[in-house]
């Protein structure tokens, strides 16, 4: 195996994880843009998606229906959470709200522990087949599913924000909440919309990644943190930034593990986060910040 195909292998591996980080980061960015909250429960949405999927497919529900049902279930759960835990604290400072999301994250994980136990669960890949060889490197079909899903979702998100009423209303809230309210847009509804939309993104990320990583009750914590790092890399308020941040983080991790030291993979990710926060707090891809979304 020569260096070129070795590098290609690292990049394939990085793109797969990076795609997931991007989906999680996107959830962070959408909620942050609309509500000003950094939602640390985002990783748990991923876990819930994966766990519902495992349970449903285990009960014999066909793949496509299970995917749709899992996403809807997570959206309902998150809708209830937004209504019950975030909305009553609407007047609180953003820091308080962030701490509420950390509490939510622990609670969701705790409940998942009681429901599903500590064992990892396996989920069959969406399509059968062995790995595909490209330029001396191999990629498994499920990785293509992950990358494909990421691309489709990003395109879809772009269209929703640019061309639908809800998307435009969301952007209006970001630009000027007061003016948006004068125009008859309810920021409360928008907050709910942002949470439920992020829930769907998270759930989908969990569903496509579960066949690769297995599903465990605590998988959300690390994925959530990595998604958060990706979002910060991208400036925390830009959608394309989140995507590029996610993919960049995935590839850096993979290259770091392969070329530098495989023992320090997570360390590398956190060092990058600290460096960005110290040196370029607006994010590598961050703009000066008036127009978000």
């Amino acid at each position: 195996m020569d260096l070129a195909s070795q590098l290609l292998q690292f990049i394939f591996s990085g793109l797969t994880m990076g795609g997931i980080y991007a989906l999680v980061a996107l959830g962070f960015v959408i909620i942050h843009n609309v509500t000003g909250i950094i939602n640390f429960a985002q990783g748990e949405f991923v876990m819930l998606g994966a766990m519902f999927m495992v349970t449903l497919t285990g009960a014999g529900v066909p793949l496509l229906l299970a995917i749709v049902l899992s996403i809807i279930l997570v959206m309902i759960v998150v809708g209830i959470i937004e209504f019950g835990a975030i909305r009553p604290a609407k007047k609180a400072s953003p820091v308080t709200l962030v701490i509420i999301t950390i509490g939510l994250s622990s609670s969701i994980r705790g409940i998942a522990l009681l429901v599903w136990g500590t064992d990892p669960y396996k989920l069959a890949p969406f399509t059968k087949g062995s790995s595909i060889q490209i330029g001396g490197a191999s990629i498994i079909p499920q990785s293509l599913w992950v990358i494909g899903t990421t691309v489709v979702i990003l395109t879809l998100t772009f269209f929703i924000f640019e061309y639908t009423y809800w998307g435009k209303a969301l952007r209006a809230c970001v630009v000027n909440k007061f003016a948006a309210r004068l125009m008859g847009i309810s920021p409360q509804k928008m907050s709910l919309f942002a949470f439920v939309f992020s829930a769907a993104l998270g759930a989908l990320a969990g569903i496509v990644i579960a066949p690769i990583t297995y599903a465990t009750y605590d998988m959300g914590l690390m994925l959530g943190l990595k998604g958060f790092i990706a979002a910060v890399l991208g400036g925390l308020s830009s959608t394309p930034g989140a995507v590029i941040g996610g993919l960049a983080l995935g590839i850096i991790e993979s290259l770091g593990a392969g070329l530098v030291s495989s023992g320090y993979k997570d360390g590398i990710a956190f060092i990058i986060l600290l460096l960005v926060l110290f040196l370029k707090p607006g994010g590598i891809f961050g703009t000066s910040g008036s127009k978000r979304v």
């Binding site: 690292f10 394939f12 994880m17 490197a137 990583t213 993979s254 593990a257 030291s261 495989s262």
Partner: peptide, 14 residues
């Protein structure tokens, strides 16, 4: 080496 909670060991195996 790989982490206890790592979900992808492709780089190491490469």
């Amino acid at each position: 080496k790989f982490g206890e909670k790592d979900v992808d060991m492709t780089p190491q195996i490469t």
